[in-house]
């Protein structure tokens, strides 16, 4: 059990209003950590702090530290951090270019892969990893905007895999998808944890119970409870957790 990410006393604010209060949490290597909680509980803020995407929001400020493999992420280069900590958004956001270009976009810009042969091999391998290869291998030049929602989200996963990250953050990745596509993405997440560490924010309690190894419950900007998923769902320690997972509120 090695801690991949260690969060110490993290507090986040928008316009001085506290949305996440002195959070202490760790993410174990090669696990899926599920984060559940009702709207406005600070889940997304938490996730976007982990790869510093919140830096672009001028109303945002924070206190505390987050360690990735022992390095404080606020001290290292943000662009390099984002390469190591990939992110999936709630709605699939393919870039307006071909499927092939979507995947090669970041590796080219970052100078990770340059030779054409290597690029082609890389595209095939990440598309296989995101179980999209069979569906799109004949139309890699087609616009990514024309794919179905589920395919787009898996393309986005492939795009993240292409930068070879260590951690992948999923921000409610299935909220715009139908049940079949959701099942495929969930299956994929379970496969991916072999190689990557995953943090999954979801407002679908059942999804967390299906895929995550451990689950954390956030409420009003506070971490109420974190435990092994089967434990948390069967015998939660806190009253609020029980109320939430049994559907009494949220």
């Amino acid at each position: 059990m090695v801690d991949k990410i260690k969060i110490e006393n993290l507090s986040c604010y928008y316009n001085k209003k506290c949305v996440l209060e002195s959070l202490n949490l760790n993410v174990v290597k090669n696990e899926i950590l599920g984060v559940i909680g009702p709207a406005n509980s600070g889940k997304t803020t938490f996730l976007r702090t982990l790869n510093r995407m919140n830096d672009f929001d001028i109303t945002y400020s924070r206190k505390g530290s987050v360690y990735l493999d022992g390095d404080n992420i606020f001290d290292i280069d943000a662009e390099n951090l984002r390469r190591r900590v990939g992110m999936l958004f709630a709605m699939p956001i393919p870039l307006p270019m071909s499927i092939y270009d979507n995947i090669t976009y970041a590796p080219k810009r970052l100078g990770l892969v340059t030779k054409k042969v290597d690029l082609e091999n890389m595209v095939e391998s990440v598309l296989r990893d995101s179980s999209l290869w069979d569906e799109v291998k004949d139309r890699l030049g087609a616009s990514a905007m024309k794919m179905s929602g589920g395919q787009q989200q898996r393309l986005c996963i492939a795009r993240v895999l292409a930068i070879n990250p260590e951690v992948i953050l999923f921000d409610e990745p299935c909220s715009g998808l139908d049940p079949i596509s959701t099942a495929k993405v969930e299956e994929l997440m379970v496969e991916l944890k072999e190689k990557y560490t995953i943090v999954l924010v979801t407002n679908n309690v059942k999804q967390a119970s299906r895929v995550s190894d451990r689950t954390a419950f956030f409420l009003m900007g506070k971490l109420i409870e974190v435990d092994k998923t089967d434990k948390l769902f069967v015998s939660p320690k806190e009253k609020e957790t029980e109320d939430y997972i049994t559907g009494r509120f949220g």
């Binding site: 662009e79 390469r83 958004f89 956001i93 870039l95 976009y105 970052l110 986005c156 993240v160 930068i163």
Partner: peptide, 25 residues
């Protein structure tokens, strides 16, 4: 704005994002 976010979240710098995603569109 989401195109910028997608590009930035991959570790691509701000200027590169503008140059390769925002400007062409």
């Amino acid at each position: 704005y989401s195109f910028r976010e997608a590009s930035l979240s991959l570790g691509v710098s701000r200027w590169q994002t503008i140059r390769h995603v925002v400007l062409p569109n």
